[in-house]
Design a binder for these strands. Structure first.
Lengths: 241, 241
DNA sequence: AAACCATAACTTGTATACAAGTTAAGACTG
DNA sequence: CAGTCTTAACTTGTATACAAGTTATGGTTT
């Protein structure tokens, strides 16, 4: 039995390249809703598909389960998780609360380069809306930029750690957002929210921040549009599993 | 290949009883610092100790690693993680920010039974301080009550979900707190903080909350007492792993 | 004595066989 | 035809053998 581990590779390599690749693919497919909630994902099918034994596949599924991407029913099977509205609401509260605080911090002292970054992201979002890209692609592009905007705010405030932490538990929020923001006016609204937030930061209007962030992030948790169209994706007690 | 999973056991049983037991034991031993940071934890040793094959043991270690309890160095070994001060600071910021918001919510409308619960916890904390219990046990008892106080606040505000989420990533904060609060005056100080917070909630003094929470949770991140005594537990780039 | 090298002993990673629980389908019974 | 039972096919859980990388040891060389 050894008594210590020698230093050599400073970095903790937590996963082989291939495993990481498979996990990223599964995550993407689930987040993009290509794999619909309720879809069965058996170890053997993945094992055959990716030409890898069940053991490493199980590692991946275990981790996905801990992050809410799938639900594991012992001896029955694994399914892509249904969207949990409770989680959406709670994560939304978490984000809005954190971002209010972060923006107040930033409104006192934001570096000029950071400001430029944020502004350029808004310009790209505007460009994205006006462009003739097809609807689905446009939405994805816009959302990527949306994330980049918020992530940048976290980074500028020295809170990258928390951004990454939240990202790990974002499955339900991300899918909800994707589904319910599928309208052009919605995108304009979101962009305007960003612009107003940036204005506040620049002009140090701390008192306006609370309301802005609230409306930007939390406003439509109970979107009727969502409830009318996507209830089949939502976690309900009676759902067949 | 099946196409759906029949409902029967509504509950997702994520782990067998034995596995859960082992995991809880490991978590407790790490949190209590009985297992010191840097301690090697090999799969085979656990496997022999608990009379279980390596496969389920690996499941446990994988999960502990994701929650920051241990670090896995492939083909080298697993160690109990060193305390990551960055994580302590970030989680502290997260908690203080969330709790400020939660307390503002509660100061408007807190149910009377909830208030009684909180008060009885404070009474027990006071009793704990005055009692003749030995130091180590007293500290543990006090900290359990401390957690119960904060947890109750989360629950009353409908934020149990977030409390549980944070708990999963509390390893570094919990161990830091345990080490640096190891003084009697410290305990009185913490209790007084609780009492002031409760006062604010009762009297709806929202403007005082920010400062109180800040001091209660965040005040001594850079505790010299901690740095002088426990640096051997702290994650540093040069640490032998 | 110091540096080097081969090798044995250890570590975790992967593949696979088997165990145990769940589901689906069909034969059987009333 | 409806209901029940048996059984085969499926699922994940566990044990174990082997693969591959890392470390420690001790002998050899210089």
């Amino acid at each position: 039995m050894y008594t210590s581990i020698r230093i050599k590779n400073r970095k903790l390599i937590k996963m082989s390249h291939k495993k990481k690749e498979i996990m990223e693919k599964l995550k993407n497919d689930i987040l993009s809703l290509e794999l619909k909630p309720g879809t069965l994902i058996s170890e053997t099918s993945l094992s055959e598909k990716f030409n890898l034994s069940r053991t490493p596949i199980r590692d991946i599924l275990k981790q996905l389960s801990l992050q809410g991407f799938i639900d594991i029913y012992p001896k029955k099977g694994n399914i892509v998780s249904y969207i949990d509205l409770e989680s959406v609401e709670q994560i939304t509260f978490l984000r809005s609360t954190l971002e209010k605080e972060i923006m107040k911090d930033l409104s006192s002292n934001i570096p000029i380069t950071g400001l430029h970054n944020l502004m350029s992201i808004l310009a790209m979002q505007n460009e994205c809306i006006e462009s003739k890209i097809e609807n689905q692609d446009k939405l994805i592009r816009f959302m990527v930029l949306d994330d980049r905007f918020h992530k940048t705010l976290f980074e500028l405030a020295g809170r990258k750690f928390l951004w990454n932490l939240i990202q790990q538990f974002n499955v339900h929020y991300m899918r909800y957002r994707k589904l319910h923001a599928f309208k052009k006016e919605k995108l304009r609204e979101l962009l305007q929210g960003h612009q107003e937030i940036l204005d506040c930061i620049v002009h140090g209007q701390k008192d306006r921040i609370d309301d802005l962030v609230y409306h930007h992030i939390r406003a439509d948790i109970n979107s009727p549009y969502f409830r009318e169209n996507f209830m089949e994706y939502v976690k309900t007690p009676s759902k067949l599993v």
